[in-house]
């Protein structure tokens, strides 16, 4: 089924349930679906697990969702930044759980979820504290760590342009986690700067094909 083109960000995030795992695109603010996250704050879902590279910047977007106390657990690679004071405060106060995942593993574990891979052996982190308690295997003389997929109930991603079917193109380094997250969640919601008529996008340039996308909103 093709994507639904929504009239508002509120319509796009309707029905997200308490306790959901939400994949949130973006690397810093590039590709961050700020309007969708703002709509999620209004929508009110709580007790969320959020998977995103960072744990919010400044006081808007993901940081605002954290500040409202809606997030139980953050799965990310790099929470600590110069402007991550919201997360820092919650973490130091013991009000949020942190699952720290190396950035490439974060991406590949979501890729695995989207590609139907049950688990995979990865060399990243072997012999470090982040691999403690995980199954390891020697393959051709190298140590690999068993990593499991990360699946989302919902993915919120920021893309550049969509057509009316939900085919997506991205812009520059704002692409980052979007295409991977779009494959890894049951409900995929994209915010874009423009929705164009189907047929207007060059099929050779489409990065996320419409099969992955459920809802689109232009913001």
């Amino acid at each position: 089924m093709s994507a639904t083109i929504c009239d508002s960000a509120a319509e796009a995030v309707a029905g997200i349930e308490d306790g959901s795992t939400i994949l949130v695109g973006g690397f810093g603010m590039a590709g961050m679906p700020v309007e969708l996250v703002d709509a999620l704050i209004e929508q009110g879902a709580k007790d969320l697990t959020v998977v995103s590279n960072n744990a919010g910047n400044g006081d808007t977007g993901l940081a605002a969702l954290l500040a409202k106390g809606r997030v139980r657990k953050m799965v990310c690679s790099f929470p600590r930044q110069s402007d991550s004071w919201v997360f820092d405060g919650l973490y130091r106060a013991g009000k949020i759980e942190l699952d720290l995942v190396p950035q490439g593993n974060l991406a590949e574990r979501m890729r695995a979820a989207g590609a139907g891979i049950g688990a995979f052996f990865c060399p990243t982190g072997a012999g470090t504290s982040l691999a403690e308690g995980k199954e390891v295997r020697e393959i051709d003389g190298r140590t690999y760590v068993l990593e499991y997929p990360i699946r989302g109930d919902v993915a919120l991603i920021g893309a550049h342009v969509s057509d009316r079917m939900g085919n997506l193109v991205y812009r520059k380094t704002a692409r980052n986690f979007g295409p991977v997250m779009a494959t890894a969640a049951k409900l995929v919601i994209a915010q874009v700067s423009e929705v164009v008529d189907t047929g207007r996008l060059d099929p050779e340039a489409i990065v996320t094909p419409s099969i992955y996308v459920d809802r689109v909103v232009a913001v």
Partner: peptide, 15 residues
């Protein structure tokens, strides 16, 4: 007291 943040360091180191 330090908030851990690994980013891509582990992936780069072995890659």
């Amino acid at each position: 007291e330090a908030i851990p943040a690994v980013g891509g360091a582990m992936d780069l180191a072995i890659g």
